[in-house]
Simulated scan of single mutants.
Amino acid sequence: MDLLDWHRGRISARRLAVLIEHMPRDSAISHALHGDAAEWTVTDYLLAAAVDHLAAANWMFAAVNTDENADPPEAPIPVPRPGAPTPAAPEAPPPITPEPPTPHALAHFFS
Rank of each mutant, 00 (worst) to 15 (best):
M1H: 03
M1P: 02
M1S: 06
D2N: 14
D2I: 04
L4Q: 12
D5N: 13
D5Q: 14
W6A: 15
W6P: 06
H7P: 03
R8T: 08
R8K: 14
G9V: 07
R10L: 13
I11Y: 02
S12H: 07
A13D: 15
R15Y: 02
R15H: 08
L16H: 06
L16A: 15
L16S: 07
A17Q: 14
V18C: 05
L19Q: 10
L19M: 13
L19D: 06
L19I: 11
M23L: 15
M23F: 04
M23Q: 15
P24N: 12
P24C: 12
D26M: 08
D26L: 08
S27Y: 09
S27V: 11
S27T: 05
A28G: 05
A28E: 09
I29A: 15
S30T: 12
S30D: 11
H31G: 13
H31I: 02
H31W: 06
H31C: 04
A32I: 02
A32H: 05
L33P: 03
L33S: 12
L33V: 12
H34P: 02
H34K: 12
G35H: 09
D36G: 15
D36A: 15
E39W: 10
W40F: 14
W40G: 06
V42F: 11
D44E: 13
D44T: 07
Y45N: 07
A50V: 04
A50Y: 01
V51Q: 13
V51W: 01
V51K: 10
D52M: 00
D52I: 00
H53G: 03
L54R: 10
L54T: 02
A55S: 04
A55C: 01
A56T: 00
A56W: 00
A56R: 01
A57F: 00
N58A: 01
N58R: 03
M60A: 10
M60L: 13
A62R: 14
A63E: 10
T66G: 04
T66Q: 10
T66R: 15
D67P: 01
E68P: 04
E68V: 13
N69P: 00
A70Q: 06
A70M: 10
D71I: 00
E74G: 11
E74M: 13
P76D: 00
P76L: 01
I77Y: 02
P78W: 00
V79Y: 01
V79M: 04
P80W: 03
R81W: 04
P82D: 10
G83S: 11
A84V: 15
A84I: 11
A84G: 00
P85Q: 08
P85W: 05
P87I: 00
P87Q: 02
A88S: 13
A88T: 13
A89D: 14
P90G: 04
P90D: 09
E91S: 11
E91H: 07
E91R: 13
A92N: 06
P94F: 05
P94G: 03
P95C: 12
P95I: 12
I96T: 15
T97D: 07
T97M: 06
T97E: 09
P98T: 12
P98G: 07
P98K: 07
E99Y: 03
E99M: 07
P100L: 05
P100C: 00
P101A: 10
T102M: 05
T102Q: 03
P103H: 09
P103I: 06
H104T: 06
H104M: 08
A105C: 02
L106S: 05
A107K: 05
A107F: 03
H108C: 11
H108P: 01
F109Y: 15
F110H: 14
